[in-house]
């Protein structure tokens, strides 16, 4: 999986379920989606990453795959917190929510959040990756 062939430099996965993180990473690797995949099992840890690297925005991932239901800080709280970081606002991270939730309330909340680009149902597959890529390119152009 050479760096030249990969779509993105860096992708972050935030999901408390180990098996789902593995799945997402596996699918991305198989499809040369990212050079580097950062995995976090807690939203708080992901948030820490951004705070720690606030002076170093080049290490920010281009794509964040975010789960909704997680212990302690859930996906929505993470969105709220991260949108308060000034460094993050200037950066154009593309956030995709990935969940197995069927709750219309969750869907509405995700779709109405301006920093969420897309709501994707688990499990993540090849087509989803293609879609994310297009979304990212559209937001850039």
């Amino acid at each position: 999986m050479g760096a030249q062939n990969s779509t993105f430099k860096r992708v972050m996965i935030v999901d408390d379920t180990k098996i789902d993180r593995y799945l997402a990473a596996y699918v991305m690797q198989k499809n040369n989606f990212a050079v580097e995949i950062i995995e976090y099992d807690m939203a708080a840890k992901a948030l820490d990453f951004f705070q720690t690297n606030k002076d170093n925005p080049e290490v920010f991932p281009e794509i964040i795959i975010l789960d909704i239901r997680m212990p302690q800080m859930d996906g929505f709280e993470f969105l709220e917190r991260i949108s308060l970081l000034p460094e993050f606002i200037n950066n154009s991270c593309c956030i995709v929510m990935l969940s197995s939730s069927l709750s219309p309330a969750d869907h509405d909340r995700a779709n109405n959040n301006p920093i969420v680009k897309k709501f994707i149902n688990k499990p993540l597959d090849k087509d989803n990756l293609k879609e994310i890529k297009e979304l990212y390119q559209n937001s850039r152009s």
Partner: peptide
């Protein structure tokens, strides 16, 4: 109901994902 359906569904979807990738 939403919580239960989510929590029942989450492992199922994980399993589906595993099955999908294992096929290839």
């Amino acid at each position: 109901v939403y919580s239960v359906s989510h929590d029942l569904r989450a492992p199922l979807l994980s399993m589906q994902g595993i099955v999908d990738i294992t096929g290839e």
